[in-house]
């Protein structure tokens, strides 16, 4: 199962400076564990006490996972995951 994850600049040093990495899993938690095996330390930057870190936003096919099921959000083949820091928008 191929799921592509795009990482923000700040996390790339933990992933051999890659902008996009492939992962596997039926849930977001599994997909993060899969990445952690190749890139130790990445999980700790995303997850804290079993939940997403406050200033980390993760999107599956552009939808914020906090409204899908958090770390239990389901994944399917071909899904696209984006990891982004929370920033101020608005005008």
């Amino acid at each position: 199962m191929a799921i592509q994850v795009s990482l923000p600049t700040i996390l790339r040093p933990l992933a051999k400076d890659l902008r996009r990495v492939d992962t596997e899993g039926e849930t977001l938690a599994q997909a993060i564990d899969f990445l952690e095996a190749s890139f130790p330390g990445l999980k700790d930057r995303l997850v804290e006490d079993g939940a997403l870190r406050r200033y980390v936003n993760i999107y599956i096919n552009d939808e914020d996972v906090r409204f899908l099921g958090g770390l239990d959000s389901e994944l399917s083949d071909g899904d696209r995951i984006d990891v982004l820091p929370a920033v101020a928008g608005g005008q």
């Binding site: 923000p8 600049t9 700040i10 870190r53 200033y55 982004l84 820091p85 920033v87």
Partner: peptide
């Protein structure tokens, strides 16, 4: 996003 630190969002 480039220089954003994930702890200072």
């Amino acid at each position: 996003y480039g220089l954003r630190n994930l702890d200072e969002g």
